[in-house]
Design a protein around this nucleic acid. Structure first.
Lengths: 112, 112
DNA sequence: TAAATTTGCAACTAATTGGTTTCTTAATTT
DNA sequence: AAATTAAGAAACCAATTAGTTGCAAATTTA
C-alpha cells in the first residue's frame, strides 16, 4: 500500500490517466469514459496517484476535479539526470576520440 | 511476464542495480554483494531487466558481466518530454504574465 | 579427473495488485 | 420531498510479483 511515483507510473492505465489530465483537470467519471474499465477501477488508480501526490483534487459541488501535479513528475526526471550525465559524458568522450583521430590524420597528412 | 521499462524501474532493487552497473559492467555475484537479498533474487531482477533490454550481458568464461543500456533509459525521458513541454510552457506563460506586469508598472511609473 | 565456483532454471510460497460488486454519503434535479 | 447523479469505501477474487529452495550446466582450479 506504500507506493512511490515509480510504482505509480508503472501501470499503463495510470500513465494514460496522467496524460489525460495533464492539460486540464477532469472528474473520475469523465476520465473513466476514456477507458474500458469501470469507474471504480479508475477511482482506485486516482487514489494511488493521489497518495503519491502525483495528482491534486478540487471539489466543485458533488464533482471532484483531478489535476496533474507536474512538479512531482520532475522527481522522475531527477532520477534520470544521473544517467543523463553519463550518456552525455560518453558522448563527450566520443568527441575526444574523434578529435584525437582527426589530429593524427592531420599529422599524417602533414608528413606526406 | 510481459514487462515494460516502467514496470522494470518500479522496483527499488532494480533501480539500485541500474545505478550500480551504470558506470561499469558487473557480474550477478558482485551485484548481489551490495544487497541483503539472495543471488537468485538478483538473478531474477537481472532477467527482467534483460527482457526489457535495459541491460546487456557479456559472457567472459563462466562469468557474465551485465551492463546498463543507457539508450533504453532514454525511452522514459521521451515519455517525460511531453510533460516537460507543458511545464516549460507554463513557465513561459508566467514569464509573459511577469513581463506584462512589469510593463504596466513602467507605464504607471512614467505617468507619475 | 575431481572439486569448487558461477550462473541460470523450475517449482513453490506469501504478499501485492488490479479489478469487480455492493454499499454509503453527499449534492443536484425534478 | 423523491429520484438521480457523483464519488469514495469495503469486501472479495484472480493474477502477478518478489522471494526462497533445490538442482543442473558450464567453466576453473587443484
Amino acid at each position: 500500500m506504500r507506493r512511490d511515483i515509480f510504482q505509480a507510473i508503472a501501470d499503463p492505465t495510470r500513465r494514460a490517466i496522467i496524460g489525460l489530465i495533464a492539460i486540464q483537470a477532469m472528474t473520475p467519471n469523465a476520465i473513466a469514459e476514456h477507458f474500458e474499465t469501470s469507474r471504480q477501477a479508475i477511482s482506485k488508480h486516482l487514489r494511488i496517484l493521489s497518495e503519491c501526490e502525483l495528482i491534486q483534487q478540487e471539489q466543485k459541488g458533488r464533482e471532484i476535479f483531478y489535476q496533474l501535479e507536474l512538479n512531482k513528475l520532475k522527481e522522475i526526471d531527477q532520477w534520470l539526470a544521473q544517467f543523463k550525465a553519463i550518456w552525455e559524458n560518453r558522448f563527450n568522450e566520443l568527441d575526444t576520440i574523434l578529435a584525437n583521430l582527426k589530429n593524427k590524420t592531420d599529422e599524417n597528412e602533414s608528413t606526406i
